[in-house]
């Protein structure tokens, strides 16, 4: 975002490298007109945690749907119209009073795109990837998500083709809410498992 009155910042070395590769590939006819814009639009507006929130709200509101979601995540998520790359093999893991789930990708940045969008920078950075499998209780507490000692923590490292979605516990006092209202309570972080609702 540029603001009025600010001079444009000088082009950084990484921007020069991007421009160089873009120019060479374009000259060779390998980047179709409008390709970058099209890709950017798709990731910025068509996928995101608003999709996952609808899945969670449906599972809270409809016991049959929740059963289907836990039995076959990919099919149940497809019922709501979501699917595609990085969402072809979905597994939903359910938080309960006795179990807290959290997802990570220690080797790269695997993440369930159709329901959560692209991962945030911190999910892809070394501290989260290194620490979540080694000291999850301490790291979760540090991130503001204290899990009581008597609650089991299950970490899911997305190291193959399955992508995970955490099904958070439905907050107390939400009995009268509509599915749309429920979806409004669901945060991205609660579906990664670094927050409790």
């Amino acid at each position: 975002m540029s603001e009025h009155g600010h001079r444009p910042s000088p082009v950084s070395p990484v921007e020069q490298r991007v421009a160089a590769l873009a120019a060479l590939l374009t000259e060779r006819g390998l980047v179709p007109e409008g390709f970058v814009e099209k890709v950017t639009r798709r990731y910025e507006s068509e996928i995101g945690p608003m999709n996952g929130a609808k899945v969670v709200a449906r599972a809270w509101a409809d016991g049959g749907y929740k059963e289907r979601l836990l039995a076959d995540g990919t099919a149940a998520i497809a019922e709501l119209g979501f699917g595609g790359p990085e969402g072809d093999h979905m597994v939903a893991v359910e938080n309960t009073p006795a179990v807290h789930n959290v997802i990570v990708c220690t080797l790269c940045s695997c993440y369930p795109w159709p329901v959560l969008g692209l991962p945030p920078a911190w999910y892809k950075d070394p501290p989260y990837r290194a620490r979540m499998v080694r000291e999850p209780r301490a790291l979760l507490a540090e991130m503001g998500c204290a899990v009581p000692d008597d609650v089991e923590i299950r970490v899911w490292d997305s190291s193959a083709e399955v992508r995970y979605l955490v099904l958070p516990q439905r907050p107390a006092g939400t009995e009268g809410m509509t599915e749309t209202e429920l979806a409004g309570l669901v945060t991205r972080d609660s579906m990664i498992g670094v927050a409790r609702l």
Partner: peptide
């Protein structure tokens, strides 16, 4: 990176 030690806090943003 799984399990490597010495990294600091996660630069979390909601």
């Amino acid at each position: 990176l799984g399990g490597l030690q010495g990294f600091g806090p996660v630069a979390h943003s909601p």
